[in-house]
Amino acid sequence: MSGPQNAMPPIPGTHLFDGDAAAKGFELNAMCYSFNDAANRQAFLDDEEAYCAKFHLTPQQREAVAQRSVLGMIAAGGNIYYLAKLAGIFGLNVQDVGSMQTGASVDDFKAMLFAQGAGQSYEEAHGAMIQKEKVHG
């Protein structure tokens, strides 16, 4: 894709949901969009394999969903606003999803947010979180 933003220096840890991603992720996002309907959420829970097949997920998408890998879903074109509806099926909120993506425990992820509230920069708070995971993880 040759959008103007491709000339821009990348933003670490950040995946813009651009045309490339939107094209790649269409099926996965369509499935997640369907989860606005409770009956569809139940159908997914009842038979995940069949439900994913119905939406023609790509193998990469199916694998990421099977592994509950948020980063994998994003790499496969998933958009977080739609993915959040899939996460909702498992009772996961955005802090759980943050924990899954950063590799930190949910408590440490929350502590990282509080640290920013207490005046630390993201870099400081994130650095401390990563350090902690290395020690405890």
């Binding site: 933003i11 670490p12 840890g13 950040t14 995946h15 948020v70 980063l71 994003i74 977080i80 993915l83 959040a84 955005v94 999803v97 943050g98 993506q101 950063t102 992820f109 990282m112 947010l113 920013q116 005046g119 993201y122 994130h126």
Partner: peptide
Amino acid sequence: HQLDGERAGFINR
């Protein structure tokens, strides 16, 4: 705020 990616949890006061 940032919900997605390895930078999830990013805030910039």
